[in-house]
């Protein structure tokens, strides 16, 4: 069984699986994309944001 057949058999054949894959994929992409962009943003702005200076002022 070639790869494309395997992919077709597992994800595309049944509509219920296909739709669930799309939804789960969108969710996973959303989370991952946000994590990636945030990681870049925090590195670019290292030391400037509140989370970088918060430890100086918070008393637990």
């Amino acid at each position: 069984m070639s790869l494309s057949t395997a992919v077709y058999q597992t994800f595309f054949k049944r509509n219920s699986i296909f739709v669930s894959t799309v939804f789960a994929g969108a969710f996973a992409f959303g989370v991952g994309f946000d994590l990636g962009v945030t990681a870049f943003y925090d590195r670019w702005n290292a030391g400037k944001q509140w989370k970088d200076i918060r430890h100086k002022y918070v008393q637990e």
């Binding site: 943003y41 400037k48 944001q49 509140w50 970088d52 200076i53």
Partner: peptide, 16 residues
């Protein structure tokens, strides 16, 4: 300004 670039946040120590 520390926040002028299109990717730059405010400098929060300066805000304080």
């Amino acid at each position: 300004w520390p926040h002028s670039g299109i990717l730059d946040t405010f400098d929060h120590a300066s805000i304080r």
